[in-house]
Amino acid sequence: MKKSMLILSLAIMLLTACESNDETTNISVSTNSFPEIIEPHNPEQAEQSGDVVVLLEGMRNQDKWKTFVKNVKNKHQDQVRVTMYTLEGGAIIHELIYDGSAIQSTYDDSRDAYGSKQGRKTNTCKGIGTMKSEQGRVFYVLTDCEKEVSTFSIPK
């Protein structure tokens, strides 16, 4: 009886050890999904969704932006959605996903009356830097982007 239990245990261990090592079964999947955008995407809804909200009068959820910048600097994966509002109240949405080496930027200005109706635009950039405007204001910008011009800038 003990001998048959030992043989059965060894057989189970061998079968378990011989499972497929197919990479698709062992990869931990990260979906990098953002909360669904509820229309109309007003500043209060964007803030409740966890977006960093940039308005003329200031920034909401600024701590999320600071954490994202810190994580990029320290090469830790992170993501953030930044929703900026125009003078007319149109939402311009930037989704930034940092994988530890590059930032995938997605730009959507389709909710802005003066925006492009061509859909979302993407760009890949290597980092975040700062830029000073002619008026002396400092902005965060994406740096070393594949496409020459990055559409992203946020007040520092």
Rank of each mutant, 00 (worst) to 15 (best):
30 S>H: 12
56 L>T: 01
13 M>Y: 04
74 N>A: 14
94 H>N: 12
40 P>Q: 10
35 P>R: 08
65 W>T: 12
49 S>W: 03
76 H>W: 02
131 M>W: 09
71 N>C: 09
79 Q>F: 05
55 L>D: 04
43 P>E: 12
106 T>M: 10
115 G>D: 02
11 A>L: 15
139 F>K: 08
63 D>E: 15
12 I>K: 05
25 T>F: 15
81 R>G: 03
23 E>C: 00
14 L>D: 05
98 Y>L: 00
148 E>M: 09
77 Q>R: 13
19 E>L: 10
21 N>F: 06
22 D>R: 11
62 Q>V: 10
44 E>P: 01
15 L>P: 00
88 E>F: 03
58 G>E: 08
110 S>G: 09
39 E>P: 12
91 A>F: 10
86 T>C: 11
57 E>F: 01
123 N>E: 09
129 G>R: 00
39 E>Q: 01
48 Q>I: 03
40 P>M: 07
22 D>E: 11
98 Y>S: 00
74 N>M: 12
117 K>W: 03
74 N>D: 15
13 M>C: 11
146 E>Y: 05
10 L>W: 07
15 L>A: 13
37 I>A: 11
10 L>D: 04
142 L>Y: 06
34 F>K: 09
113 A>T: 10
126 K>L: 07
82 V>N: 05
82 V>M: 03
18 C>P: 01
118 Q>L: 12
74 N>V: 07
87 L>N: 14
58 G>A: 09
116 S>I: 02
76 H>L: 07
109 D>T: 05
57 E>K: 15
76 H>Q: 13
101 S>H: 03
141 V>H: 02
44 E>Q: 15
32 N>W: 15
92 I>H: 10
145 C>K: 06
128 I>T: 00
131 M>Q: 13
33 S>T: 13
112 D>A: 13
41 H>Y: 11
41 H>K: 03
113 A>C: 01
130 T>H: 00
130 T>C: 02
145 C>V: 05
8 L>M: 14
30 S>C: 05
32 N>I: 02
34 F>V: 07
27 I>L: 14
67 T>V: 10
29 V>D: 04
24 T>S: 08
136 G>D: 06
136 G>M: 06
38 I>W: 00
61 N>A: 13
104 Q>S: 13
95 E>K: 15
135 Q>T: 11
93 I>Q: 10
51 D>S: 10
33 S>L: 14
125 C>M: 04
60 R>Q: 15
14 L>V: 14
73 K>N: 13
34 F>P: 04
59 M>W: 00
121 K>D: 07
15 L>W: 07
85 Y>K: 07
132 K>Q: 15
99 D>N: 15
130 T>I: 06
39 E>W: 02
12 I>M: 13
124 T>C: 04
101 S>E: 09
145 C>F: 10
132 K>E: 14
113 A>W: 02
84 M>V: 06
89 G>I: 10
70 K>E: 15
15 L>I: 07
140 Y>A: 08
118 Q>T: 07
67 T>D: 14
47 E>Y: 03
33 S>A: 13
6 L>W: 07
